[in-house]
Amino acid sequence: MLILDTVSRIVHVATAIILVGGSTFILCVLLPSAKQLSDDAHQQLATAINGRWKKFVHGGIALFLISGFYNYFRAIPNHKGDGLYHGLLGAKMLVAFVVFFLAAALVGRSEKLAGIRANKAKWLKVVVLLAAIIVSVSGFLKIRGSAAQAPESAAAVIVETSGEATPVSVE
């Protein structure tokens, strides 16, 4: 399982790097630079980029879902009864679904979502901001570990006396 766990984690993080980095590049570099082009050249560039980028977005969403659910189900036993972990992870997953929707809408063809594509810069800002929140929550949860590993209080200290571990409060 170690190999599968490692591959799943690498796929999940690499997908985040590619999609968040690509979205940030489009927002901060490509869109401002494209404003300098004529309307016709701008439209041609947007169409060409959208055609390629959509493959990354759709493939990335699929990889996120597969690796994310695998990682989640592997982590559940380590976080049984850990309300903070499950609350933050649940919120992260809900925000991720919003990001998936917006990212798909930005590269899609649905007429009902044309308003999102018409305001690409605005919605890319939302995507990048939400992605930063997701990465922040993920980083916190990874560093925090499970509740079983953490002391009940930040001020708790384990003191070893005569071969026995005894919790001592230092408040």
Results as ranks from 00 to 15, higher is better:
149 Q>F: 06
97 F>S: 08
80 K>G: 06
109 R>H: 06
91 A>F: 13
112 K>Y: 00
18 I>R: 05
37 L>Q: 10
48 A>T: 05
57 V>D: 15
119 N>H: 13
55 K>P: 02
132 A>V: 14
79 H>C: 06
102 L>T: 07
105 A>W: 07
5 D>V: 02
153 S>N: 04
81 G>V: 08
5 D>P: 02
79 H>V: 07
72 Y>R: 15
62 A>G: 05
80 K>H: 12
156 A>S: 13
132 A>I: 10
21 G>D: 10
72 Y>Q: 07
1 M>H: 13
19 L>C: 04
137 V>L: 15
5 D>H: 07
11 V>K: 06
89 L>N: 11
25 F>G: 10
111 E>D: 14
81 G>W: 14
92 K>T: 07
70 Y>W: 14
65 L>K: 06
166 T>P: 00
164 E>R: 10
89 L>R: 12
49 I>E: 02
164 E>V: 08
122 K>T: 15
113 L>E: 08
109 R>L: 01
111 E>N: 09
52 R>F: 09
38 S>M: 00
88 L>T: 03
127 V>G: 12
6 T>L: 03
122 K>A: 14
169 S>L: 15
18 I>H: 14
126 V>L: 10
40 D>L: 11
106 L>M: 12
157 V>S: 07
143 I>T: 05
65 L>N: 08
19 L>T: 03
165 A>L: 06
127 V>Q: 13
161 T>P: 06
126 V>T: 02
63 L>E: 14
160 E>F: 04
130 L>R: 10
